[in-house]
Simulated assay, not measured.
Amino acid sequence: MHLAYPAVLAALLFCVGLYGVLARRNAILVLMSVELMLNAVNLNLVAFDVWLRDALHAGQALTLFTIAIAAAEIGIGLAIVLMVYRNRGTSDVDRLRDTAEPAESGATPESTDEKAEAAA
């Protein structure tokens, strides 16, 4: 097997995933694009493992760890996206920049430090 074929396919998959991360606004599609990038890495790991004829199959073992981490990332990421959608009503990534709670009116960082010192 030539190494060029899976390497080119993995590079194309990674580029499509990178485009999806940079261009998409929906958080679900961003998570799917990250998964696509991780799958491109998995393809490279297995291809190089076969090409190098590693006796320990380290590339395949790393692929299993990557799949486990990707599953955990998707589970936590979807939970966060669902909670944000319930609270904000949208999963638009551009609108999520304002997730911090609004500051008290007229409160400056100096006045909050003075209040903390007075309370202590």
Rank of each mutant, 00 (worst) to 15 (best):
N42S: 13
V46W: 05
I80D: 00
A107V: 12
N39A: 14
A4P: 06
L18D: 02
L62S: 02
F48G: 00
A116W: 08
A61T: 09
Y85T: 04
D113A: 15
H2A: 05
T66H: 04
C15Q: 10
C15E: 02
W51T: 06
A118L: 11
A116Y: 10
E110P: 08
A116N: 05
T112A: 08
L12T: 10
A47G: 13
A55M: 05
G75D: 01
A4D: 12
K115C: 01
S91L: 13
L56N: 02
S111F: 00
N39C: 13
S91T: 14
T90Y: 11
C15W: 10
R95G: 15
L64I: 07
A70G: 07
Y5C: 01
N39V: 13
L45F: 05
E110W: 03
L18R: 01
F48T: 02
P102W: 03
R53F: 00
V81F: 06
A79T: 05
L22G: 10
E117C: 00
S111E: 11
V21A: 09
E101F: 10
A55Y: 07
Y85N: 10
V50R: 15
L3H: 14
L56V: 12
A107Y: 03
L3S: 12
V41S: 02
F48R: 00
D54G: 07
E35Y: 05
L45M: 12
V93E: 00
M32A: 12
L43H: 04
L45P: 08
P109S: 03
L62G: 07
A55D: 13
V84Q: 04
T112R: 13
L22Q: 09
N26T: 04
I80S: 07
A103I: 06
V16Q: 02
V30A: 05
V93K: 00
A40Q: 07
H57K: 10
R88W: 12
T66I: 08
A120N: 15
V50T: 05
A10M: 12
L96Q: 10
G106D: 03
P109K: 00
G77T: 05
A70W: 02
R24D: 06
A55L: 10
A4T: 13
H57D: 03
F48E: 00
V41D: 00
C15S: 13
A72T: 01
I67K: 03
L43P: 06
T108S: 14
S33F: 11
D94R: 15
S91V: 15
D113N: 09
S91N: 05
V16D: 00
A27Y: 03
A70C: 11
G89T: 08
F65C: 10
A10W: 04
A68F: 14
I74E: 02
L12R: 01
V16S: 09
L96I: 08
L64Q: 09
Y19C: 13
V93R: 03
E73A: 14
F14E: 06
G59F: 05
L82G: 00
A27M: 15
L13Y: 02
V30T: 11
D113H: 06
L43F: 04
Q60T: 08
D54F: 02
D49H: 06
L22N: 11
D54Q: 09
A118Y: 09
N39E: 04
G59M: 08
R88G: 09
I76R: 07
L18G: 13
N39Q: 07
N39M: 13
G89N: 12
A79C: 10
T66E: 04
L18A: 15
A7N: 02
I28S: 01
V93L: 15
T90F: 11
A118V: 06
L38Q: 01
I74V: 09
R97C: 14
